[in-house]
């Protein structure tokens, strides 16, 4: 076998993976190792592969992904904290032929925006909600979130979440799956290649569902917050597997046809 040089391999015809053009060239504002970047890429790859950039309108939340519109190369609106599903409701109803999605964190979606989330889901708005659950308020410096695990430390639960004092973490995805307006509810992760591939299939299904006009598709992505959890990225992914997944088990929760 003859020796092959790197230059011979790095030819356009040999390309198997490169960043989608639906991600802008702006450097992501997320901490090193944060799952937000991977989740952004998964969503944008799906929109790219479906060829629906021109018909897509995204809604950015308040939180770490408040600047999502800097990275996602589609028309975007930046919502007030928790209100993204309300914006998306109007956009979809006023322009039913468009693809509309929200991208929200756990504080945005499951605390301040609980009403907007539940009612958009219950009305069966034909939108996609991407929900990043990392169990903490990352942007504001690591405070307790509605999804913070029992005993989990944060800057506002410095001795661990005491459920007797601070209440229970909210499994909002299971709650949403009960609502008649949701068509597809799933929980995914983006910490390993296999998880990313599964998450991408879920996001693809969610966007394909929008064509059916049969209800809302909700994709939770359990993610890490290594800065907030005060770990290295790989440690945080291991911690997530050991601690987050038992409480927030991965997989489809509701699949209707």
């Amino acid at each position: 076998m003859s020796q092959i040089t790197k230059e011979e391999i790095r030819q356009p015809e040999n390309l198997v993976y490169k960043k989608t053009e639906l991600l802008t060239d702006n450097p992501l504002s997320y901490c090193p190792g944060c799952g937000h970047g991977t989740a952004h890429r998964v969503v944008m790859e799906v929109i790219d592969e479906m060829g629906i950039q021109e018909q897509t309108i995204g809604i950015a939340p308040v939180g770490c992904s408040v600047l999502a519109y800097e990275f996602m190369n589609v028309d975007m609106q930046q919502a007030a904290h928790g209100r993204a599903p309300a914006l998306a409701t109007a956009v979809k109803r006023l322009m039913p032929e468009k693809f509309v999605f929200t991208y929200q964190g756990d504080g945005d979606l499951a605390a301040i925006g609980t009403a907007e989330t539940i009612h958009a889901c219950n009305r069966g708005e034909n939108i996609v909600i991407i929900f990043i659950n990392n169990g903490i308020y990352g942007m504001t410096g690591g405070q307790m979130a509605p999804t913070t695990l029992p005993g989990m430390k944060s800057s506002t639960s410095p001795y661990g979440r005491d459920v007797a004092l601070m209440g229970n973490p909210l499994k909002i995805t299971e709650l949403i799956a009960q609502l008649p307006g949701t068509l597809y509810v799933t929980r995914q992760a983006v910490h390993t290649p296999a998880a990313v591939r599964r998450a991408k299939r879920a996001v693809r299904k969610a966007f394909e569902n929008q064509k059916l006009n049969k209800g809302l598709s909700f994709v939770e992505i359990v993610s890490n917050c290594n800065s907030g959890w005060k770990m290295t990225p790989n440690q945080s992914n291991e911690w997530m597997v050991e601690n987050m997944f038992p409480f927030y088990p991965l997989g489809d929760i509701k699949v209707n046809d």
Binding site: I59, Q77, A79, A80, R83, A86, L87, A88, T89, A90, V91, A115, E116, H119
Partner: peptide, 8 residues
């Protein structure tokens, strides 16, 4: 929600 629908 209503005013944020208006926003959207």
């Amino acid at each position: 929600a209503a005013i944020n629908m208006v926003y959207g």
